[in-house]
């Protein structure tokens, strides 16, 4: 009993230690990341690695999510004679929720795990250490460009996801289900607000981009320098960032959309 309590206490202390360390890490990275702006080449490389290489999965997923959404919602809404509202419902679901959240989850799986594994391996093979000894700060040279790259990539990916999804929904709605194409767009424009819906969706995806890349680079940088440690860091990245995205989504939704009439 006593030992179990001890374990619980140690476990709790360890959580707090990691929480504190990850925040200090973020602080140290962001204090050094302004220098990155002077070297856009490094950031561009990272946007390629996390953004461009995530494009296929994001586009395919967006297309299918939009199509399935239109199909499912149509079947429900046609019973109420509300199939004209298919456009706005598809658009709102994508722009407010599914776009940022699903993109962030896919991003955590595709880019976050790769980031954690890459940095973890660099640590395990002493590359980070050797950089330090070459008087190159790995936080600035390796971590900061990746953080900025992820931060910039996710909102663009989320926007593409939503746009492709809405288009996919459009094709299903008008081509397959016979919804009037003018109604699809005009109803959408009447109900989707530029600031309340689209801008808030973009804010969400910026926050998610920040959090997912932060968790990924921290887990990689903090990994035990062994192959087992790297594997664990990769798993932890996907699990923790997915949970963080879902939790933050609730908070952000409550904050931004809560005061709607």
């Amino acid at each position: 009993m006593i030992t179990q309590l001890q374990h619980l206490g140690q476990w709790t202390l360890k959580r707090f230690e990691r929480l504190g360390r990850s925040h200090l890490f973020l602080l140290r990275v962001s204090s050094g990341s302004w220098g990155v702006l002077a070297r856009p080449g490094l950031v561009i490389q990272q946007i390629f690695a996390v953004g461009v290489l995530s494009l296929p999965i994001i586009l395919v997923a967006g297309l299918f999510v939009g199509m399935v959404l239109a199909l499912q919602l149509y079947n429900t809404m046609v019973d109420f004679g509300a199939e004209q509202s298919l456009g706005p419902v598809v658009a709102l679901s994508l722009v407010r929720e599914l776009g940022p959240v699903v993109t962030a989850l896919l991003f955590a799986g595709r880019a976050g795990s790769a980031l954690a594994a890459e940095i973890g391996l660099m640590k395990a093979t002493e590359q980070l250490s050797s950089m330090e000894m070459m008087a190159v700060d790995p936080l600035r040279r390796i971590v900061a460009p990746r953080l900025v790259g992820g931060l910039l990539s996710l909102p663009l990916l989320a926007a593409l996801f939503s746009a492709v999804g809405i288009s996919g929904g459009f094709f299903v709605a008008t081509g397959l289900l016979g919804v009037d194409s003018n109604a699809y767009w005009s109803q959408m424009q009447a109900n989707v607000d530029l600031f309340d819906d689209i801008a808030n969706g973009v804010i969400k995806s910026v926050v998610f981009g920040m959090v997912v890349t932060w968790i990924a680079v921290f887990e990689g940088y903090d990994a035990a320098p062994t192959s087992e440690g790297v594997a664990r860091a990769t798993t932890r990245t996907v699990v923790n960032s997915s949970l963080a995205v879902l939790g933050l989504d609730f908070i952000l939704t409550a904050l931004m959309f809560g005061d709607n009439e």
Binding site: E126, Q127, S129, M133, M134
Partner: peptide
């Protein structure tokens, strides 16, 4: 410290080349 390190060279056991 970083200025001093520019005057130090270190050969790691694994080589630690950037892969």
């Amino acid at each position: 410290l970083y200025q001093l390190r520019k005057k130090m060279g270190m050969l790691f056991q694994s080589g630690a080349l950037l892969t």
